[in-house]
Design a protein around this nucleic acid. Structure first.
Lengths: 143, 143
DNA sequence: AAATGAAAATCAACTTAGTTGCAAATATCA
DNA sequence: TGATATTTGCAACTAAGTTGATTTTCATTT
């Protein structure tokens, strides 16, 4: 997941001002090969400049709402974030029990999923979760 | 997900004492057709008797470690729990954007997943997550 | 029946990740 | 330039869960 995207242009296309902090968030994520926690993003930016955590949380939130980022509920009590641009289509993730890192796996077609997920990268897969999100039949009826 | 399991026996088989609270937790989950938050379990028990939240959290934690329950990291900042006994094999979940409820879907074979997930129950699937958990190659090398 | 000891439950205080409301700074437009 | 809107920062707060110490329960042993 290297940064192939032109972030200023990406933001411009959505009418979002490309402020220094917004670009910093995108660059940190673009430079990462794995999904990152808000905390990690915050620290990465702080290694270069001064930021308030609230600002970062708000940027992450805004980006997620606009579909610029995907928020992953992969681990209890912490969100992970990744770029959601055309170069980073949805894909399965692999979290290590031990170090907690969240690797991105190939967005292989679903039929090949099971086979693919168990083998590659030398990971030992103990558990595969499949999760669907949307609007349930009950809520669809109401609205 | 109705309770087909004999909880006292289940616990006995694992050498876990079937205390009133432990059974209460299992009964609440056994009676539910969906995965529940710790909060909901706590409230369900409190409608019948007095409990301290710490006790419930510790029971949920112990049960999860022993494989009696599965903890689902389905939503930011809250865990959901479900029975992990033989009558409740792993399966995909559906969370409603609107009400937040976490339905259990059929544990259909993975090759049929995609097709199956989109159609049934009248839910509108906006997003399908596939998540793998285990020990990554790096951590495997170290230990 | 009383004493003992281990397991279970409780309590208060704390932690972590994230949120709110408002003020200050910065950018944008007339 | 001044007026307005947007972004950032700060302090205080919240929700969910955790910790450590204490008390209760309860099955044994005396």
């Amino acid at each position: 997941m290297s940064d192939l995207c032109d972030f200023p242009q990406l933001l411009a296309g959505l009418g979002v001002k490309p402020t220094a902090l917004r670009l910093a968030v995108l660059e940190v994520l673009g430079a990462s090969s794995k999904a990152l926690r808000a905390q990690e993003i915050l620290e990465a930016i702080r290694s270069k400049r001064r930021v308030n955590k609230v600002t970062v949380y708000r940027i992450l939130d805004g980006f997620t709402r606009r579909g610029i980022l995907r928020r992953l509920a992969i681990e209890d009590r912490v969100s992970h974030y990744e770029l959601a641009c055309e170069h980073h289509p949805p894909h399965p993730h692999f979290q290590c029990h031990n170090c907690g890192q969240v690797q991105c796996l190939e967005p292989a077609p679903l039929e090949r999923m099971w086979r693919d997920l168990k083998g590659p990268l030398g990971n030992r897969a103990d558990r595969i979760d499949i999760r669907v999100e949307g609007v349930c039949h009950k809520c669809r009826e109401i609205s």
